[in-house]
Design a protein around this nucleic acid. Structure first.
Length: 494
RNA sequence: GCCCCCAUCGUCUAGUGGCCCAGGACGGGGCCCUCUCAAGGCCCAAACAGCGGUUCGAGUCCGCUUGGGGGCACCA
C-alpha cells in the first residue's frame, strides 16, 4: 500500500445488460479502493425513466458478485451515504439545484422543447453550433421563482459564463483547457423534476465523499461543465480518471450491437451473464479485461488479489483498446489450470448434470488431472469427459479401423488387445501400458494405430484424454465390455 | 460542421532523453515431447504513423500532417 485510502464508485445506469465495458468500469475503481484500503461504492444512476430496464440493476449486481467485486456501500447493502439509487434522492437534487440558482450559477428555463428544437434546426442550417439561445438566462429571479411556484413547467440550466476558459484535470491526460464560449447552458434538472447526470453525479460524488471518479472517456467532453458545476458549489474536485473505450476486434470503431451479435455466433459474448454460461470463469474474464487499458511489464497472469496488490491508477492507458477474444480464451484456460482440483470439479459438475448424466464426485475428481489442461472453457469438459459417465457409447464403425489397415486386421488387433487386457487382474495405467506396447511392437505397427483403435473402442471418440489413464478410471469390466462390442462391430464389417 | 481525446509488433501492452539495432503476452510459423487432443520446452517472423523542430543525444519533449476514437439531447 503506497497511497492513502481512497473512495471510489461504480455508477452504472440500469438501462441494459451488463457487458465487459461495465465490468472494467467497475474493476479499476474497485482495485484502486482495495489497493489503498479505501471504500468502493455501487450507485445506481436511474434518473432516466424512459430508458429504465427492470432487470438491469439485478444483472449489474449479479455481474459484480460473479466477478468477485464486493462493494462497501450500495442499494442492496446500504451504507451511511444512502440512498444509493438516484431516483430515491430527488429532494437532495432539488435542494442543490436551487442552491446553485441562488449562487447565480443556474437559472430556471421555461422554453418549450418545440421552440428549442426549432432554434436548433435553424442554427444547424446556418452552420452554427447548436446552443441554447439564452432566452431565460436573464429573467428576473423573483419573477422566475414565482412562475415556478405557480407550477409552470420548467427546467434548470447551468449559467455558463460567456467569457473566459476553464482548466480541468484528467489524471491520465493532464490539464485540459476549454473556452467557456464553447460550452452550453446545459440542463441540470429536467421538467419532470429529476436531475440529469451533470447535476446528479456531481452532487452524489461530493456527498458520498468520492475522491477518485473513474469513468468512461465519453465523459471527457463534459468534464469542463462538471468542473464548473463543482466549483460553482465551492466544492473540491475529485481526481478524474477517464478510461478509454473498447473497440471492435478489428480495431475499427467502438464495440457495437452488431459486433455483439457476431461474437455470440462464434461462441463468444461481451455480456457477463452470457460469459458465465459459455464456460468462462471470473478469474479468466477479470484477467482479460484488466489488461485492456492497464499495462504490466512482465508477468500478466493474475488473480484478483494479485491485481489489487499490483494496481496503480497512474499506469492506466488513455488510448482505445480493441478487444481480442483469443486472449480471453488464453486467460480462461490458464486460470482453469490453476484451480484446485476440487474447485474445478465443483465448477464443471453442473455441465454434466445439465446433460442428465449421473456424476459421482469420486470419479469426477479422478478425471480432473486428465482434462484440466485440455479445457479452454468449462463446457469443454463435455466433449472430453462426458463419455466417462455414459452407460452406452456409440463408436463409429469406420473410426474403429486402425489407420492404414482394413477391418479384418483391425479385428485381429482388437482381439489380441482384449486377450491382454482380460488377463490382467485389473486395468491400471502401469499394468496395461507395457503389454500393450509390446503388442504394438510385436505387430510392427505404430502406437498411434493400435491405441487409436482402442481409444475409439473405449471412449467412442477419436479425441479423448490419455487412453490408459482413462481405462483405469473406467475400470476393467466396462473396458472389456466395450472392446468386445467393438470387436463385434468390426466383425460385421469384415 | 464545431469541440475534445488518442497514436510502439496483426492485437493488448512495457518504455517517462542515453540501460532500446525497442521488452513481455496473445495470435502466427518452426522444432522437441507425444497413444489422439491439449499442456509444456526451445526457436523464428513481427512495431516506435509521416514530416519538421528542441537536444551532444528522441520511441520518450514541442509543432504540423495523417489516421483512429469520443462528444455536441429534458441519455447516461
Amino acid at each position: 500500500m503506497n497511497q492513502k485510502p481512497v473512495r471510489t464508485r461504480f455508477a452504472p445506469s440500469p438501462t441494459g445488460r451488463m457487458h465487459i465495458g461495465n465490468a472494467r468500469s467497475a474493476l479499476y475503481p474497485y482495485l484502486l479502493a482495495r489497493h489503498t484500503g479505501g471504500a468502493f461504492i455501487l450507485r445506481i444512476e436511474d434518473t432516466d425513466q424512459k430508458r429504465y430496464s427492470p432487470g438491469a440493476e439485478q444483472e449489474l449486481i449479479d455481474g459484480l458478485h460473479w466477478l468477485g467485486m464486493d462493494y462497501d456501500e450500495g442499494p442492496d447493502v446500504g451504507g451511511p451515504n444512502g440512498p444509493y439509487r438516484q431516483t430515491e434522492r430527488r429532494e437532495i437534487y432539488d435542494e442543490y439545484s436551487w442552491k446553485l440558482v441562488e449562487l447565480g450559477h443556474a437559472f430556471p428555463c421555461f422554453c418549450t422543447p418545440e421552440r428549442l428544437d426549432r432554434v436548433r434546426q435553424e442554427q444547424i442550417k446556418n452552420k452554427q453550433n447548436p446552443r441554447y439561445d439564452g432566452t431565460c438566462r436573464n429573467l428576473d429571479p423573483d419573477d422566475s421563482r414565482r412562475r415556478v411556484q405557480n407550477g409552470e413547467r420548467h427546467v434548470i440550466r447551468f449559467k455558463m459564463p460567456k467569457e473566459g476558459s476553464i482548466t480541468a484535470n484528467d489524471l491520465l491526460r493532464g490539464p485540459i483547457t476549454t473556452e467557456n464560449s464553447a460550452l452550453d447552458d446545459s440542463i441540470l434538472v429536467r421538467s419532470d423534476g429529476l436531475p440529469t447526470y451533470h447535476l446528479a453525479a456531481m452532487v452524489d460524488d461530493h456527498l458520498m465523499g468520492i475522491s477518485h471518479v473513474i469513468r468512461g472517456s465519453e465523459w471527457l467532453p463534459s468534464l469542463p461543465l462538471h468542473a464548473h458545476v463543482i466549483r460553482g458549489f465551492g466544492w473540491e474536485e475529485p481526481t478524474f480518471v477517464h478510461l478509454s473505450v473498447f473497440l471492435k476486434p478489428s480495431g475499427k470503431g467502438k464495440l457495437s450491437k452488431r459486433d455483439k451479435d457476431l461474437a455470440m455466433k462464434d461462441g463468444y459474448s461481451i455480456f457477463t451473464g452470457d460469459m458465465q454460461s459459455l464456460g468462462y470463469i471470473p478469474e479468466g474474464v477479470l484477467n482479460w479485461i484488466v489488461l485492456m487499458g492497464w499495462g504490466v511489464s512482465e508477468e500478466d497472469v493474475m488473480t484478483l488479489d494479485e491485481m489489487i496488490a499490483r494496481f496503480d491508477v497512474n499506469s492506466l492507458t488513455p488510448s482505445p483498446a480493441a478487444i481480442n477474444f483469443s486472449k480471453l480464451d488464453h486467460f480462461n484456460a490458464t486460470h482453469i489450470r490453476q484451480l484446485q482440483p476440487a474447485d474445478l470439479a465443483a465448477r464443471i459438475k453442473p455441465y454434466f448434470l445439465k446433460e442428465n448424466l449421473e456424476v459421482d464426485n469420486e470419479t469426477l475428481l479422478k478425471i480432473i488431472p486428465l482434462i484440466r489442461e485440455r479445457l479452454v472453457t468449462l463446457d469443454d469438459c463435455l466433449p472430453f469427459a462426458a463419455w466417462f459417465f455414459r452407460e452406452r457409447i456409440e463408436p463409429k464403425p469406420e473410426e474403429l479401423i486402425a489407420k492404414g489397415l482394413n477391418a479384418a486386421q483391425s479385428t485381429q488387433i482388437a482381439r489380441q488387445a482384449y486377450a491382454i487386457l482380460s488377463s490382467l487382474p485389473e486395468i491400471t495405467h502401469d499394468q496395461a501400458e507395457p503389454p500393450m506396447r509390446a503388442l504394438v511392437e510385436q505387430l510392427g505397427l505404430s502406437p498411434n494405430q493400435v491405441f487409436g483403435l482402442m481409444r475409439v473402442a473405449v471412449t467412442g471418440q477419436t479425441v479423448s484424454p490419455p487412453l490408459f489413464e482413462s481405462m483405469e478410471i473406467v475400470g476393467k469390466p466396462k473396458v472389456l465390455a466395450r472392446v468386445k462390442t467393438a470387436i463385434e462391430i468390426l466383425e460385421k464389417m469384415g
